[in-house]
Amino acid sequence: MIIEKVLKPNVLYYPGCLKKFVYRNLKENYEKILREMEVKFIEVEEEVCCGSPVRNAGYFQQFRNLVRKNFEVFRKYNVGKIILSCPACYYTFSKEYSKVCREWKIECVHAIKMIWEGIRDGRLKIYRKGRGKVTYHDPCHLGRYSGIYEEPRMIIKALGYDLVEMEESRETSLCCGSGGGVGANYPILAREIAKERIEQAKKTRAKILVTSCPLCVFSLKKFSGIKTVEISELILSHVKVKKW
């Protein structure tokens, strides 16, 4: 038993900075859902930013430093697998880390894939079916960068909603406006783009706009006329979880 504990690599849940420091409720949502599925995971304090914004802004040396730091932290905790719920962190860990850190071999899974499997296999019970039209916004890092288009859609449908697509979706999805540092560097520009996306969402006559990235939520939530939610919020209003 002790040997097993020492040798068996840990599974880590990495919520990402936005969920850890800003949208803490979203972090808790994913923790609740994962626990309900009886996924055993650890969380660590010492981990740092995945480096995505740093890399995107052109600070490659600083990015390599972050990769190194995280690698050391994960090694210390004997992490063999990371569960991620933020699209940019997921993309960066799964595609970019091995390019700058040769020893990087940690498996990365996106929580949405696990949640879809949980719903499909009945480990997550839907106690109340949703009704009405819902549309889904593909975050760039989850869709185009990582090729995950189906799972979030299957979840929305499984929850009982009528999924309607915007005129630009999947591979041709329109960015929420904040990506690439635009949200922070040129907020008025980001806002105009978000407005265009919201118009597309409203055109579908959906009552809820669902997305799966905390920054997209931040970007799109500022507008009235349609309710914008992160997918974990939608899931938790239909799936019962035990109190912890």
């Binding site: 900075c17 420091f21 995505s52 600083q62 920054l215």
Partner: peptide
């Protein structure tokens, strides 16, 4: 911020308020 605090938002973000400038992604 990332170099000092390990996250792009800096120290004040610890109290959980939504930052005006959310540098992420």
């Amino acid at each position: 911020n990332v170099e000092i605090f390990g996250n792009p938002f800096g120290k004040s973000s610890k109290n959980g308020e939504v930052q005006e400038k959310l540098y992420c992604c």
